[in-house]
């Protein structure tokens, strides 16, 4: 008698692959670091509000990097801020995910040429999982970015991190 035979007969046991279980748990509770930089942060906050309701995907802001799973870089990253972001990123325990939100965080946006103070893309400092284009992106776009991230987490394996 293998375990699979008991999958439905014994009511209090569910059999699943450990990869699937872990991935399901991770992607359903992506706690983001409560962190906003510029106008994108306003859209991110709007996404968290009741109309778009980030929480239905398990995303809630957590105000310490040590208990966060993800960080949404929402806005213009200045050189001065980039050093702080790097430190915050290093404080997040693995596995950690990064959504780069908006043109500024993706590549410098409107500051690409004359912004003497702007880092031209957060991926110069920390590795990005999902880029969300827009200036700023609408909440729907950010939600799609999150769904893409969830898709990525769903395909991860304990043996090998896909990111």
């Amino acid at each position: 008698m293998g375990l699979l035979d008991k999958e439905f007969t014994e009511g209090n046991i569910v059999i699943a692959k450990v990869d699937d279980l872990f991935n399901w748990a991770r992607l359903s509770s992506v706690w983001q670091l409560g962190f906003g930089l510029a106008c994108c942060a306003i859209e991110m906050m709007a996404t968290s509000m009741s109309h778009y309701d980030f929480d239905r995907f398990g995303v809630i802001p957590r105000n310490t990097p040590r208990q966060a799973d993800a960080i949404i870089i929402s806005g213009t990253v200045t050189l001065k801020m980039a050093t702080r972001i790097k430190r915050l990123y290093e404080q997040i325990p693995d596995p950690k995910y990064i959504i780069s939100m908006g043109s500024c965080a993706n590549c410098g946006g409107p500051y690409w040429e004359h912004g003497y103070h702007v880092l031209k893309g957060i991926d110069r400092v920390i590795p990005v999982d999902v880029y969300v284009p827009g200036c700023p992106p609408r909440p729907e776009a950010l939600l799609e970015g999150l769904l893409k991230l969830q898709e990525k987490i769903r395909n991860e394996s304990l043996r090998k991190k896909s990111a």
Binding site: L79, A82, T83, C107, G108, W112, E113, Y116, L119, K120, R124, V125
Partner: peptide
């Protein structure tokens, strides 16, 4: 003014 190449190891120009 001319942008520096690097600040704290981060490349500054586009």
């Amino acid at each position: 003014y001319k942008n520096p190449e690097f600040y704290q190891g981060m490349k500054v120009p586009y």
